[in-house]
Design a protein around this nucleic acid. Structure first.
Lengths: 171, 171
DNA sequence: AATGAAAGCGGTTAAAG
DNA sequence: CTTTAACCGCTTTCATT
């Protein structure tokens, strides 16, 4: 029987950046529990363990999977306060800006840094012990920095992780 | 020889939320590579595999480790555009606000949502296919929502993960 | 590209220090 | 709390389809 050009079978293979449904199922599982045994993943997605092993290796080599990380609770590490700090840089000091960009991810307390377009240049997500530590962070590393023109700190009440729907892996 | 009250040995045990240096070493390793074999972790931190196993289990039960997750590249999944959307809610509709808060993490494209204090109420980190999808997201899920008063979208040029220094695990 | 078998290695638990 | 020891199960490779 002939296959129409817009047949669903073709979309499964070509859509979604070259990932088939088995790949997406594997990714969904690994995004949720990165320590699940290869055997168990294979079972769940309905392929042999050796096939599953090869698939995961390929996904890693293709860069779809960048790594596997433990998710640590900042509060349990004594970092009870989180904040988002919007940073505006001064426009004229290219070299100082590059220095800022290079150093920011390594500052103590920075969970992640977003380089953004718009009124602000950077958004720094920081986790610190308490409000004293937050003040110290801003004064020691931001306010005094020659590339920094302005900062605005917002306390984070809650940080809700998105579901996998967010990465287009919904079933 | 007597031990002074401020001896370094006491701080190692009592500081840092009850984690000793072995725990912190384990966390550092798991945060970097959550799929490293228990054996290998034990080797690196200088304890027996069974001890390491018990430590990791305890860290999970205490909530220090919340989980293990694969880090997926949104671009490799066909989501080439990321943005941070600042959302201001209307002040008077408590029930609608609760509905918004409940639904936001499940919206397609939301990587994570920050509930913040300040001029904005929420910061939504989203990953989408292209600018069309971004516009659709804002119009379909935010602008039209009764609890949403205002949104401001900033494109994300780069998202730099912080180092482990950020979580107080530096050596 | 997927499979099944086989060999080696790791996870997991129990008992003891 | 840590270790040693032992068993079971998983990972990984490779020949085969």
């Amino acid at each position: 029987m002939p296959v129409p050009p817009n047949d669903a079978r073709r979309e499964v293979a070509t859509d979604r950046a070259g990932l088939d449904e088995v790949d997406r199922a594997i990714l969904r599982i690994l995004a949720e529990d990165a320590r699940l045994a290869n055997n168990a993943i294979a079972d769940r997605v309905g392929i042999a363990p050796s096939t599953c092993h090869a698939r995961i290796r390929a996904l890693r080599e293709r860069g779809v999977v960048r790594g596997f990380h433990a998710d640590l609770d900042p509060a349990a590490l004594g970092l009870g306060l989180q904040a988002m700090i919007a940073v505006q840089l001064s426009a004229h000091t290219k070299q100082q800006i590059e220095a800022f960009v290079r150093d920011v991810p390594r500052l103590p307390g920075v969970v992640s840094a977003f380089h953004v377009a718009g009124a602000d240049d950077y958004l720094l997500h920081v986790a610190v012990r308490d409000s004293d530590a937050l003040r110290d962070f801003v004064l020691d590393h931001l306010t005094g920095h020659p590339a920094v023109r302005h900062t605005e700190t917002s306390l984070i009440f809650a940080h809700l992780p998105g579901t996998l729907t967010g990465l287009g892996l919904a079933d």
